[in-house]
Amino acid sequence: MTIRVLLADDQRVVREGLALVLGLLPDVEVVGAAADGGEAVELAVRLRPDIVLMDLRMPRVDGVEATRRLKQRAPEVRVVVLTTYSDDRSVLEALRAGARGYLTKEAGGEEILAAMERVRRDGAALDPAVQHHVLNALHEPPPRDNDGLTPREVEVLALIAGGLSNGEIAARLHISEGTVKSHVNHLLAKIGGRDRAQAVAYAYKNKIVPG
């Protein structure tokens, strides 16, 4: 299916360049572009794209706050951060706000497409270049019992961190997708997470997957 994308970046040349690159990719439609976070939220609520490619540093409303507002107003719209910033604080703030993916602007068109496809399938996409920042920011020692997660929940969590969707996890573990959803809901409740991006951060923090 075609991925409908909204671009959010305060630099016109970046928006136009991204629109050009994405327009050359198969099954991608750029449905709009915003120059700041506030405009991105309003356009996303109206246009309901599948993905918002969100810069972090924008005037009036930055990308983190825009992501937080979208989580409340249009939770079905997924946010993939695309930014030049890959420091600890930026990565964690974006994930905590509800971003499902985090890429640097060094990513090429195929990388962006792969990340968007993964996120649309309810997966998460972290640029390898920023994964170690998650570990650095989440430096507290892991709880010994992983907050009471069962071995199966730990297994599901590791696969979520690997970017697999519920359907892919079900196929990998030879269980139903409904069972996977149940495991996801239970493990999120135990770790105090709201979404899969926070589950990924937890998995790296607690060394459930290698950094």
Rank of each mutant, 00 (worst) to 15 (best):
L22F: 04
V209N: 05
L47K: 10
L103D: 02
V154L: 14
A161W: 04
I169K: 01
I191C: 04
P142W: 10
V5M: 07
V119I: 11
L164R: 04
Y202M: 08
V200W: 03
V28I: 14
P143S: 11
V119S: 04
L7M: 08
T179A: 13
R196S: 01
V5A: 04
Y204E: 03
L95V: 10
A203G: 02
A44K: 03
E153N: 10
P151F: 08
V119Q: 01
G38A: 12
V77R: 00
L53D: 01
H186Y: 08
R121D: 15
R120L: 12
L138N: 09
L126A: 06
P128W: 08
K190C: 10
R121H: 11
G17R: 06
D9S: 05
D147A: 12
V64R: 02
N185S: 15
P128D: 09
V156M: 03
Y102K: 05
V41W: 00
D9M: 01
V134L: 14
A203Q: 01
R100Y: 12
Q72K: 14
L7W: 02
K207M: 11
A189V: 11
E29G: 08
L157I: 09
R78F: 06
M54I: 12
A124S: 13
E29R: 13
M116A: 11
E168D: 15
R172K: 15
V134W: 00
V14D: 04
G148E: 07
L25P: 01
P210Q: 13
L25T: 09
K205G: 15
D127F: 06
R46F: 10
G17H: 04
L47Y: 09
E29P: 05
P142R: 08
